[in-house]
């Protein structure tokens, strides 16, 4: 199947550097190709590779430049620097929504797909192709005989009853640094007041703060942490050693993030970008395979209250500077107690 040459060029050299920070870069397809689709994404290359491979198989002669950046850098690249990308993919739904709302995005009518859910497309601008729940990841060995919590109440009780065990060994997102952490936190507060109680309990236990899900999972793996809260379940499921963890989708409510793609306004080859979006949506919502999901992580079969974050202008609310300032100060009061 793979009739294309795969070139990976890691960009650590400063010569190519632009003002926004890239974390990784790869080129797929023929190196001398004239038709190049430039993708900027927050997802790791290894997650996206199968999707790119199947697209290039259907479009021979095309090449894809894949640039990995953080969600805030993606925002910066498009808004401040006007970088000419053809596809922008991000897990930061609120920032993606703001880009679309503020007119940085082209409209595109995707090819009709049977049973495409309503939530998957917003305004012909944003296209959601994954559903990624936020989970509680627990170290099985570290917990010993203690019961594995099923929901936030269990977690609060567990932490309160065994403060000595968990002091300094619970972790969560630093919402000041991480866009995704901020998104999960704000959606949690919308769903229930228990988030604040949990945050205060974690603050009292000198919770560790992290920038990203993978770091938290790694910390649980090394035994640095016993429990990590609001971790992307897909990252944990996709690890080889996933059996070392208990990955819990809280049964009171599970916040689900949608990874979205869009075609920036200044895309140089928007037609090709449209084809890619079609491909992405058919592959993700069709029956073939689902990106960034594990067979064990079938949301349709899990009996928990799914709190799927709805794409729409509501997401702009927590980006409002007054609102954000107020939220962060409240959060800091809760988590940083000493």
């Amino acid at each position: 199947m793979r009739q294309f040459a795969l070139y990976i060029v890691l960009i650590f050299t400063a010569g190519w550097a632009t003002a926004f920070e890239t974390e990784d870069f790869a080129r797929f397809g023929p190196s001398d190709s004239q038709t190049v689709l430039k993708i900027v994404s927050t997802a790791d290359i290894r997650f996206f590779e199968p999707m790119i491979a199947s697209f290039l198989a259907a479009q021979p002669g095309t090449a894809i430049d894949y640039t990995v950046v953080s969600s805030t850098e993606l925002q910066k690249a498009i808004v401040e620097e006007g970088a000419a990308f053809d596809i922008a993919i991000s897990s930061a739904m609120d920032l993606q929504t703001k880009l679309a709302n503020d007119g940085w995005v082209q409209r595109y009518e995707i090819r009709s797909i049977d049973a495409l859910p309503d939530w998957a497309v917003w305004n012909d601008m944003l296209f959601a192709f994954t559903q990624e729940p936020a989970a509680i990841v627990v170290s099985k060995s570290g917990l010993g005989n203690l019961p594995i919590p099923r929901d936030r109440h269990d977690l609060i009780n567990l932490l309160r009853q065994h403060p000595d065990v968990f002091r300094g060994r619970v972790g969560t997102y630093d919402v000041r640094q991480s866009g995704l952490g901020y998104l999960f936190a704000t959606q949690d507060t919308r769903a229930s007041e228990t988030y604040w109680r949990l945050t205060e309990v974690m603050g009292a236990l000198e919770a560790q703060l992290y920038c990203c899900s993978s770091d938290m999972i790694e910390a649980v793996k090394t035994g640095e942490l016993l429990i990590a809260y609001n971790v992307l379940a897909s990252y944990a499921f996709n690890r080889e050693d996933r059996d070392d963890f208990a990955i819990i989708l809280p049964s009171d409510f599970t916040t689900v993030m949608l990874r979205t793609a869009m075609i920036p306004r200044n895309s140089q080859s928007s037609e090709l970008a449209g084809l890619f979006v079609d491909h992405l949506m058919i592959r993700s919502h069709g029956s073939e395979f689902k990106l960034l999901t594990h067979p064990a992580l079938n949301l349709n079969q899990i009996e928990v209250a799914l709190n799927r974050i709805r794409i729409g202008p509501g997401l702009l609310v927590y980006l409002d500077q007054l609102k954000k300032r107020a939220f962060l100060s409240e959060w800091e009061n809760a988590i940083v107690q000493n």
Binding site: A100, N101, G103, V121, W122, N123, D124, R190, R310, G312, P313, G314, L316, V317, Y318, D320, L322, K323, A326
Partner: peptide
């Protein structure tokens, strides 16, 4: 100003709108 979530999300409830 504590921007209510519904203030903006209600404008998008029937059709997708930029707000």
């Amino acid at each position: 100003v504590d921007l209510p979530y519904s203030a903006l999300s209600m404008l998008d409830s029937i059709s997708d709108e930029r707000v």
